[in-house]
Each structure stands twice: as C-alpha cells, then as structure tokens.
Computed example of a mutant assay.
Amino acid sequence: MEQPAPFTYDGGRVDPGETQNIRYTVSETYLGDPVKMPVTIVVGERAGPTVVITAATHGDELNGIEVVREVAHEWDLSELRGRLVCLPILNVPGFIAQQRYLPIYDRDLNRAFPGDRTGTGAQRMAARIFENFVAPADLGIDLHTSTRGRSNMLHVRADMGDDTVERVARAFASNVIIDSEGAEGTLRREATAAGTSTITVEMGEAHRFQRSLIDRALDGVRSVFAEFGLLESAHVHWPGWRTVVEDAGEKTWLRADAGGLVDVRVERGAFVEAGERIATIANPFKTSTTAVEAPFDGVLVGVLENPVVYPGNPLCHIVRVDERTRTAIESHER
C-alpha cells in the first residue's frame, strides 16, 4: 500500500497516519507578541491528493470557520487517502477585531497573495500562509460570506478555463457557478496559478453561523472528496439544477437609484422573472417610492440585508438563467 509523503512546513512535519493541531506564527503584534494561526493537518495512511480548506480570509466571515472545524474535528478521517490541511481562520487579527480587513495594516489579506517575505505586513503574512500550507496542496476550497449588510446564496466562483478547477467546482455541487479568474492577489487566483486548483465558495452573511448553509457547504466538501478519491465512503452530489455563468453580461448588481429605506420582496436564491418587482425604496414618509425590477429571468445570488441605502448602493446580485434552467428550478422546487 503506497503511503503519501509526509507533510512538511517551516518548523514541523506530519507523517502518514498522523494528525497535528498547531498554532502557526504568521506575524507579530505591536508588542512583539506572536500572531498565531490555527492549523490542523491530517495525513492519511494511503496516497492521494493534498487538499487545503481555508476560511476567514476576511475576519468577520464566520460560516466557513465552522465548515473547516467540522471537517477537521468531527469527520471520520481514518480512511483518508492523501493529505488534508485545514485553515479555519486565515485573518487572525481581523477575526479578533471582528472586522473584514487586517486591523494592524488596514489591508485586504485577500489581495495580498501569494505574498512577499520582504513586502507589506499583509504580504508577509500572506507569504507565510501561502508557502507553507497552500502551495503544497493539489486542490483548494476557499470559504467566504458576503460583506456585512448583504447575504449570498451558496454558490461557487471558479476559473472554469482550468480543467481541474472546473472539476472541483462541479463536484462541489452548488446550483450556481460564476466563471471568473478572480482579482489579482486573491487566494484562489494565485493558488491556481501556483498549481493548487482552487475555488471560492460564497455563502450567507458576515458575523454569524447559518446552520443550513454550513451543512450545504459540508455536503459540497464531501462531494469534492468523493470526486477526487479522498474518502471512499463519500459520494458525488448533484444539486438538482445548475447554471454556469460564463459571460459578464449574464450577471449584474442592481443598484439603488434613490436614497431611502428598502423593502426587499425576495430572498437570496429566489428565481425572479423579468419585470418582477424585487424591492421598493421609499423615503421616511412613503410619499416617494422607487420600484426595483428584475432586468431578466434570473436567480438572486446576493441580496441586501441592511435596509437603508444611498443612491448607487448595491441592492441585489442577479444572474441570468435560460428556459431550460428555469424548468429545472421549478421541477426541483415542486
């Protein structure tokens, strides 16, 4: 029986059949105290791919943390083929402060990859994470939520022009896949460029655990593990319907044309028809109202949760679906 290679990082090694929980130093505070990131590494007794699962690149995005923790500490991984690296909280300073960006450097960690050991504080932290735990992997799943005040349905963002990334994205079993390379400096773009085929999973909103979304994401992770042979007992999951958004013209953010209070009439994940009223914006006296309508038949992948807006604020993110997908959605919901 062929065994996987030990997993090594700067300062340690995990051998086949072993699991290690470590706190890995990624930076220092103003007082010179170490900033330590929690890491769980599991190396199976049989050879297979290496997968890295990451969350809380933005410190207030919490749903993914619970997904990573449950995979690492509640799943039976005794039959694991390959190696698993679990990073539940990448942005430790942001998590402690419960804010999106790095409070020490006021930078977006998810624009700092692959990092630079002699660069900014964010780049130095990113380099420590990337070189030790991301670049050695074959596959990556990076878990996110929407920013505060908005909420996303569970969906995948992936560079579908990369064959392995496409395979990961489809295996994750989300209804919606948005095809994009990702912005420069994002974990998934830079990881994929380095040979770690990585997808982003968006789900829910910041500052909370949302159990139904966490459970769906866990199903997605298990489905990826099945697709790539990491767990023999797992099965690849089909979500019932799917749309892959490949063209920028097939998705849009609807924005407020007036300031006021917003009454959103639909929930994230809902199917809406062209011309259907999605929201109404009104002033405090309700003497002036502005209707917001769907520009085409589509699914709302993101919606506003905070009901106050200025002109230009985003209200909802809609992706177009064709008649075939619409029929599949309606059949699945019956």
Rank of each mutant, 00 (worst) to 15 (best):
R255C: 14
I65V: 10
G161D: 09
D163F: 06
R211F: 14
A270C: 07
E305R: 11
L109V: 09
F225W: 12
G298M: 06
V236K: 13
R117H: 01
R188W: 11
R189C: 07
F228S: 00
I178R: 15
A328F: 12
E276W: 03
H207R: 08
F209A: 13
V236L: 02
I65N: 00
G140V: 06
L102P: 03
R157T: 13
L31S: 15
I96H: 14
V321P: 01
R46D: 06
L62R: 01
A291E: 10
N21C: 12
M125W: 01
A226C: 06
R46V: 13
A194S: 11
R268I: 08
V245C: 07
G195W: 07
T243E: 10
L213F: 12
G249V: 08
V299W: 04
F113P: 09
G259E: 09
T186M: 15
H317F: 10
G269Y: 00
N313H: 00
A135Y: 02
R242S: 07
D322N: 05
S180I: 07
D142T: 01
G302F: 07
D322G: 11
P6H: 13
V272Q: 05
V168P: 04
A122R: 00
D179A: 12
G185H: 12
L139C: 00
D76A: 10
A274R: 14
E246Q: 10
A291L: 07
V266D: 08
A291D: 13
L31M: 11
S146K: 06
H235Q: 15
A97T: 08
L218W: 14
S212F: 12
S151F: 09
V14C: 15
G269H: 02
A328Q: 14
L231D: 01
R255G: 13
T186A: 07
H332P: 09
E246C: 10
D247L: 06
A127R: 15
R23C: 15
F271D: 06
A191R: 05
P93Q: 03
R111D: 00
F133I: 01
E131L: 02
I53K: 03
V39Q: 10
V264L: 07
I22E: 06
G204P: 10
E184H: 05
A158K: 11
A97K: 06
W241L: 01
I65P: 00
I65H: 07
V244W: 00
V321K: 00
Y310D: 11
P4E: 09
A270E: 09
F113T: 04
E184L: 15
A193Y: 10
T192R: 05
P16M: 03
G298Q: 12
T57P: 04
V14H: 08
L230Q: 11
A171V: 08
N283S: 10
D162W: 04
R189E: 14
V236N: 09
V301Y: 07
H58T: 00
D142F: 01
E276Y: 09
V42F: 13
P307S: 04
G149F: 06
V309Q: 00
D215S: 14
G182H: 11
K36T: 12
Y9V: 06
P93C: 05
V266S: 01
V67Q: 02
L254Y: 11
A194M: 06
A127Y: 11
L304Q: 15
E333Y: 11
V303G: 10
A256P: 00
V319M: 04
T50S: 06
Q123V: 03
E181T: 09
R124P: 09
A56L: 05
I53Y: 02
A158C: 12
N110K: 03
A328G: 12
R46A: 09
V264R: 08
Q20F: 11
